[in-house]
Write a protein that binds this DNA or RNA. Structure first.
Lengths: 293, 293
DNA sequence: GTGGTATTATAAAATATTTTGATAACAACA
DNA sequence: TGTTGTTATCAAAATATTTTATAATACCAC
């Protein structure tokens, strides 16, 4: 069976229109008709109901079942393509959230250069949540990910290497600036400058606001710690971050005194189905040795 | 890309011999050569190293990576075939371990017959461990499974409906026969008659022997509770089972007094990727209503 | 070394499959 | 009633796959 047919079919379940699918794949419309007929013959079942009366196309249960598997098959296939391409070019694509990249990557970069590995590494940036999805989709080989619970996914190998508490950062001019420690609850009337939603920081933050029953005023969101810190320095708002971010004048770090606070856990992660090349194994070893403990 | 090529390649990674693969698929040998060449062109990488000097064939890292995905793709494909076939014939294939079948199935059979569903159900028998694997491989649509921990798998939906403690069963003539309760530790010198290894009973049993630091004498293993019970009645050995097995004269049930004993948990299980037909949904509802609580 | 065996590759021919172009069939809608 | 937007049919063309026949290579036994 040709996987092209599955791709046509999968697209058909979305578009629900033969002609549109043909257009998308840049083929003629009968190609789609015959492809679907081929699949229907192969699986011995009607996959779509062409209801011309109601001007609509519905997917039969058999079709839905096939679509389910088609998605997985096509994903596996593109994953294999991506992985092998990286393998051949001896390129390692490494997902890095910006904070982790800033703090941890310089620590390993020197060693990677010494081992002549640095030029083989392509970094992909993004929040930990997006990177985890991307990793599962095969967009990269490995990632350093942040999380607030130890990572545990059926298809991912995760190896925790560090933990950091979260702190509150406020401007020198903020009323709380001369305090060393605060309770989260005291911040209920403050304005916040935070990360975008695909960062785990928000999961931790939301946990605390939920626990303290308040809706925080978030005045700005950014992907960039430096921007967040500058806004905090200018007293636009306060923020909630780990201390692995760069230090900044005019900003004061406050400890949180709440019980059972979330921690920022950093892990090295890759797919269980992914076979490590010698170079990837080397990278893993270096990361282990440098980052752990 | 044709999935046939993946099947050829996947077999090649096992056989490590082009001619043998050709034989297995009943095609001529150049078919395999060209299929592998096609794949190598498609993925832009060498997949196998044909080392005629050392009379061997090795799979390159790219090849291993592809093989990994090929297995998943082929599994998905055959799963789709099986599921759709059941769908079309409106057949539900239901995995049942024999003990569960004996105890629970009669309870739902009458209701299934009333709903004219009974004739659509094909039961597949086997130990819970094998059935779980078979379920994941797509050999059946649903299963009633036993386990000693709540079932939690990424690809399976599990719904617990009952729990039973394990007991020790001994012959009337056994020295312990007039006791009501024993500690597992007291059985360290007894002979055991047990289930085969693919039954969860053994997981529970092993847990207890490990905890009590002894190697049990297992004199016989069987798939059939009736045989096990008959052997216990004849004092060939004692056994470790739940009380959902048929009662038997000449056999005495002893409670275990150990703390934190494993329990026999029964759950209704199906794949998360599996789309339920109306008939399957009906079966699920009947099982729920009858078995739960 | 020579001949035999087992293995994989190559090239051309034979088959099989897929896509196309042209057109039909159908229903909705103005 | 004609026009538009659909999907299906069919034969021809274009592609892709498999086979047949044979070559190339290395091992092994004598």
């Amino acid at each position: 069976m040709n996987t092209k047919d599955l791709a046509y079919f999968q697209e058909l379940t979305i578009q629900k229109n033969f002609s549109k699918v043909a257009e998308i794949f840049e083929v003629r419309q009968p190609t789609i008709t015959t492809a679907i007929q081929r699949l229907e013959a192969e699986f011995g079942a009607q996959l779509v109901i062409r209801d011309r009366v109601h001007h609509s196309l519905t997917i039969t249960p058999s079709g839905q079942q096939l679509a389910e598997h088609a998605i997985r098959i096509l994903r596996d296939l593109s994953m294999a393509h991506q992985e092998i391409q990286n393998l051949v070019q001896n390129q390692i694509s490494l997902g890095l959230p910006p904070i982790i990249e800033n703090y941890y990557f310089p620590k390993i970069a020197a060693k990677l250069k010494a081992k002549r590995l640095l030029r083989n590494i392509i970094t992909v940036e993004g929040g930990s949540v997006d990177l985890r999805k991307g990793l599962l989709a095969g967009n990269m080989d490995m990632a350093l990910l942040g999380s607030i619970e130890p990572l545990s996914y059926a298809n991912l190998m995760a190896d925790e290497f560090d933990r950091h508490p979260f702190y509150i950062f406020v401007s020198k001019n903020h009323p709380l600036a001369d305090r060393k420690r605060v309770f989260f609850n005291e911040l209920r009337h403050d304005d916040f400058v935070l990360f975008e939603n695909s960062f785990v920081h928000n999961q931790a933050f939301n946990k605390l606001t939920r626990r303290n029953h308040f809706r925080p005023d978030v005045v700005f969101r950014s992907n960039d710690t430096h921007i967040i810190m500058k806004l905090v320095a200018q007293n636009v708002g306060i923020t909630y971050l780990t201390d692995i971010v760069d230090h900044q004048d005019n900003v004061v770090r406050l400890e949180l005194m709440d019980e059972e606070q979330p921690e920022f856990i950093t892990s090295i992660v890759y797919r269980t189905s992914h076979i490590l090349t010698p170079a990837q194994l080397q990278l893993l070893t270096i990361m282990h040795a440098t980052l752990k403990g």
